[in-house]
Design a protein around this nucleic acid. Structure first.
Lengths: 247, 247
DNA sequence: GCTTGAGCGTTCTCTATCGTACAAAGCAGT
DNA sequence: ACTGCTTTGTACGATAGAGAACGCTCAAGC
């Protein structure tokens, strides 16, 4: 038993320096199960990682950058339902036993991560209950995020939703500089580009953000939190709780 | 092997007459695992089945009636993120390995079903991979519903959202009569009560519904579908696909 | 038959946001 | 430096829906 554990430990690839929180929370034996199939990838802006209706080829564990998950309907109405950074991964449907993506997922802010082929991931899931437990929790945390996005979409005003979104992205970034145009922000929130511009003007006037072309910088996070009010925070607290039992 | 299957078959409680689609899709051995702990329940209007933050005591498999799942934030902003009828069950967090409810869930339209204690359900999940696969698919179908609710909340107009909601409820009912007040409809959609009244007037003028006090009757479903447009249908199609491999 | 209250119809004003449009400003390539 | 494209600032009318209010109506209980 301890001999077996040791032999696994010997084969265990290094994960020091990795910042993905799911990887960090994996048991050594689960990491060993996945690591041989992990492939480091750099992730460019707008790079698609999932296409609705299509089989999922790889799961992406994010080290840096932000992925947008966007629901699209048959008339091409679209809206972001959640974002994924170094706290999570893509490929929720695989965790649930499906092979296809329901939603569109792509890099909103360039970064890097590790990916694993869908087949290898599913194989590992089958062999480790502890791994699948961790993945399920991660999926659930994402569900909570989606539910609160539905709430914000229905009840919050543009400035509140924008504030919420900035905070969520900021949580997943190393720097305070968010490299995004108003146009893309508007698409995510499902609002007019001009509306975003006006809202960001207000934020700038209040000293919450500084703006550059194609980029904005978070200056006063607390101020933004105040604007977002109760529309920000619950999914984040829930993520913490859901992950707390995993070391 | 066949002897064992037979002995299970002998112990298998009857499930003829049950209309819950998850129960219908269960393998005989999975049904046998759960059935001893199932308890038939009648479900009254407004009866709470899950309270946010509280441990989930039972899972409810719905035979008739409709449950609303409502997300609530710290300032008591609330909105419905999905509904559950005889196609599903409550207790998604348990399937994901959590013990607490994130959202509020209660009977929107009275009905009946079967419930099982959370502990017994989790025990059964541990013992049967096929059962947990089925439950996971059901959970995923609900996630898709939530995502499309987020889309509708962000992009659709009141009439479209109302149409979508009526169709979703109608799908889960035996009759065309929906026993609900405008007030409750408004709460679900996160809009004004007066807005619902006006929208329903339009529907009546077009001959889509008939209205009584505290109730409305679907008359022309196709007309309502036309109003809902692309905001209705994808989760329903996805549910069908996700369940198709289970008998 | 009368009272009461929930449910509903309607109205009025107000505001957030849309749709559209256009010009200014910054950046990239020639 | 010039050109052309992307991004941003701004404006203006249109509109959906909010908020608030009030009276009517129906059903149930007295």
């Amino acid at each position: 038993m301890s001999a077996r554990a040791e032999s696994i430990a010997v084969r265990e690839p290094p994960r020091t320096g990795l910042r993905n929180q799911l990887i960090a929370r994996m048991r050594p034996e689960d990491w060993s199960l996945l690591a041989p199939n992990f492939e480091p990838v750099t992730l460019k802006e707008r790079q698609l990682v999932e296409v609705p209706g299509k089989p999922i080829s790889h799961l992406y564990f994010i080290e840096a950058g932000v992925i947008s998950v966007v629901v699209v309907n048959s008339e091409d109405y679209r809206i972001e339902v959640g974002i994924i950074g170094n706290e999570g991964m893509t490929g929720v449907p695989l965790v649930m036993g499906d092979t296809r993506a329901q939603h569109s997922a792509y890099m909103q802010i360039a970064g890097r991560g590790h990916r694993i082929p869908a087949a290898a991931f599913c194989e590992a899931l089958k062999h480790s209950r502890s791994l699948s437990a961790l993945m399920l929790r991660s999926a659930q945390a994402f569900m909570v995020q989606t539910a609160h996005t539905a709430l914000a979409n229905g009840r919050a005003r543009l400035v509140e939703r924008l504030a919420r979104w900035l905070l969520m992205v900021h949580d997943r970034m190393d720097t305070d500089a968010v490299p995004l145009t108003h146009e893309f922000l508007a698409v995510m929130l499902g609002v007019r580009r001009a509306g975003v511009t006006v809202a960001l003007n207000i934020f700038e006037q209040r000293g919450f953000v500084a703006r550059q072309r194609g980029q904005l910088t978070i200056i006063n996070r607390a101020g933004i939190e105040k604007v977002a009010g109760s529309f920000y925070g619950m999914p984040e607290a829930e993520l913490k709780r859901l992950m707390s039992e995993f070391a």
